[in-house]
Design a protein around this nucleic acid. Structure first.
Lengths: 248, 248
DNA sequence: GCTACCATACTGCCATACAAGTATGCAATA
DNA sequence: TATTGCATACTTGTATGGCAGTATGGTAGC
């Protein structure tokens, strides 16, 4: 289940509700940069492409627009939004805040079953460290989701996913060269913090981890200027100070 | 601006895009319990009511469904969702996490202009403490929004608003009897923590504040059983431990 | 060569029509 | 009386046509 529900996420099953399927497919195509930022799309174009009418396409567009993946300009057209540094950072900020509290919950009352499950997931990650980066991304996703579920906040994960799409676009741009080993080690640090009931260290580990993922965001933006909004340079990111170590 | 853009939020301006207006109006009606939980609504009913076609209504429904305010059952109908204790608590949890980090940011680098603005808002709240509860809710909202804007995370507030609707439904049920004075004092505690640069105390003040708002959630649910989902009692809420004061 | 104008094609938005599934009430039957 | 079957009136989902506003390319005028 972790590896593949993948078979053909790219096809539309005409016998089931079309609009939600389209939403999923289009989001995937955008996040994976198959539909490139700046490209114009239209309801009729996509409708023809998938052999459906414009109506479900429109409904998919609306949801994607809410997610910030496309921009609908009335009477002018619809286009894939470029990746906005601000949007990505805000998504990360929100996600860090939420997951930090989740991890604190877990560390305050460590649960051996959950810890075991998380360690299992990390083992899986080790095994696929050298393989397809896609698989690792899925594994990473499973890990973070497991964190939420362990804290009995599974419903929250669904909310978070809408935000995640912004970050995911960046991750798919940096597919090859992110430090898998390092990320796995950070996962492990989080879990061990939880297992020891060390709230502060678990929280710090998580915050560091989520910052790592986008640490070379400016670099990626420089390497793929066409995919990003004009960068308002000088606008440095403000993140909360980590609780460990430093003091006034 | 704080008091009234209110004139007639309940009317539809046929010359402007209809779907977004409908979304706003319907959300307001649901949050204020004008459209009561459990009630069945249909696209055609609402369409006739506002003198528009089904299409924009449908699009508004989709968005409201994403917010968790209504449930669309294909071929069966659409109904106003009852207030789910879990959904409310999850919304509150997320909001606490985000705003806690925002407050930490502010307290780490106190900005006299922002502090002055926040104090102004609190003065306004004092002046309208005895007045229409609606006005106080708006003032409270302005305060929390100002927090986000001061941290240069204004974009985040828009994301948070989607979650807030769940909490707002509860607030509108408890309109008369929430402790306005106490809430204002808590606002003040947050601001003074920020002003002193006391990160821990500001954060704690905010977390306490957001918990206060829903402290009598079970009571409200008991008093208005028709508005709430069947309560899975015994499921107590898990919140993160506050950093100040308490220890094992 | 340059500018202003206009026809045309295209867009998203809305209205309407049709399709398919579901609840409901009534009637026929056991 | 209780139950089954069906006609009917809903529901949402999808398709299609018309509308108003916008970009675009060519052309006429200078």
């Amino acid at each position: 289940m972790l590896i593949e529900q993948a078979d053909r996420i790219w096809e539309i099953d005409q016998t089931r509700p079309i609009a939600p399927q389209l939403r999923r497919v289009l989001r995937e195509r955008i996040v994976r940069n198959d539909l490139q930022p700046g490209r114009k799309i239209s309801e009729s174009e996509i409708a023809a492409q998938y052999g459906v009418s414009r109506q479900p396409v429109r409904e998919a567009f609306i949801r994607l627009s809410d997610e910030g993946l496309i921009a609908i300009l009335p009477q002018r057209g619809t286009r894939i939004r470029r990746i906005g540094l601000t949007a990505v950072r805000e998504s990360r900020f929100i996600r860090e805040a939420i997951e930090a509290d989740i991890v604190r919950l877990l560390a305050e009352r460590p649960d051996s079953a959950s810890v075991a499950e998380l360690r299992d997931l990390i083992d899986q990650q080790h095994r696929m460290a050298e393989g397809d980066p896609f698989d690792f991304i899925r594994a990473d996703e499973a890990f973070h989701r497991a964190l939420a579920r362990s804290a009995a906040k599974d419903g929250i994960w669904q909310r978070v996913q809408g935000l995640k799409s912004q970050m995911d676009r960046v991750r798919f741009l940096s597919l090859g060269h992110f430090p898998v080993r390092k990320l796995i080690d950070q996962h492990a640090a989080i879990v061990e913090g939880i297992a020891r009931g060390d709230v502060a260290s678990a929280e710090t580990a998580l915050r560091l981890h989520l910052r790592e993922v986008l640490s070379d965001l400016p670099l990626i933006a420089q390497e793929n200027p066409d995919f990003f909004d004009a960068v308002p340079d000088g606008a440095e990111e403000r993140v909360v100070r980590l609780n460990g170590g430093d003091h006034e």
